[in-house]
Amino acid sequence: MKGPLFYSKILLFGEYGIIKDSKGLSIPYNFYNGALKSDGSTSEEAIKSNAGLSKYVAYLATIDTQLVQFDLEALTKDVEEGMYFDSSIPQGYGVGSSGALVAAIYDKYAKEKITVLENLTREKLLALKTIFAEMESFFHGKSSGLDPLNSYLSIPILINSPDHIEATGIPAQQTGGKGAVFLIDSGSIGETAPMVQIFMENMKQEGFRNMLKDQFIKHTDACVDDFLQGNIKSLFRNTKQLSKVVLNHFKPMIPAQFHELWKKGLDTNDYYLKLCGSGGGGYILGFTEDYKKAQQALKDYKLEVVYNF
């Protein structure tokens, strides 16, 4: 038995800001995926994943049944018989490894589930997001529910505010385009919870709150609008500003070995870097108007193109 595939996601814009009402744009990233499997595998990964699922089943049993009900009997039986989540999505990299698992479990075991084939009204999207936030908080302590939502629907999602989200279309990629959005592997794993903790501590300071509103959210919103409308020149201007704000105010979330590289991009305009997810490790997102130039400047690192302009 092998369940359907669920893909990783990339939050192009909106990390941290969406906690405080900024816009956000999340897109599926089909390079990585995961599926529930029951094939009797005794590999180390399968055994570890199965043990993790046992703990997760116990957690799902505590979720308010008014919100969502699962066929816990079938789920428990499948887990006891060795079911595991076979995934190529790297954990702790900001591309939604737990989101894909949550989507797979909901898809297979939720009763009266909202399906992808329905007319997805704002109410249905919000209902799904609320369910997924509850399901995913087992992994992060606090979840927005967006990663599983993206993985479950496999379509780009525009976040206007926490209670106003919609499925959206993004401009078609220019396959031969010079510009690109790319991922850099930082070579280390990022833990979401401690990063969010730092952010919440900073939020207690008035100066940080003002910076978030006047700079971070302003540029994030502009980036989302520019990207969706295909205003590339303006997008890069705003991404540069956003990159600068992150370097100045979100230093703990940027792995130390990238501080110089981050600044170099801003100085040369060869590329601009931003956080991918909560930071602290995992992937870093890069934006460039000339991918060849960026490749040259970042030749010591492994890059993966996500989108071409």
Rank of each mutant, 00 (worst) to 15 (best):
L5P: 07
S8L: 04
E15C: 01
G17T: 00
I18K: 05
K20H: 15
G34D: 10
G34F: 06
A35H: 12
A35D: 08
S38L: 15
S43D: 14
G52K: 13
L53E: 08
S54V: 14
T65S: 15
Q69S: 14
D78W: 04
M83W: 02
G94H: 03
G94M: 06
A104T: 03
I105R: 10
T121R: 14
R122Y: 01
R122L: 09
E123M: 07
K124T: 00
A127R: 15
T130N: 14
D147A: 07
I155S: 08
I165R: 12
A180R: 11
G190E: 03
M195P: 00
Q197G: 05
Q205D: 13
N210P: 01
D214W: 01
H219G: 00
D221T: 00
D221I: 01
L235M: 14
Q241F: 12
M253S: 14
M253Y: 12
M253D: 12
F258Q: 06
W262S: 05
K263M: 09
D270Q: 12
Y272N: 05
L275A: 01
C276A: 10
C276N: 13
G279M: 10
G280Y: 02
T288N: 00
D290L: 00
Y291G: 04
K293C: 05
Q296R: 10
D300N: 13
Y301A: 07
N308R: 15
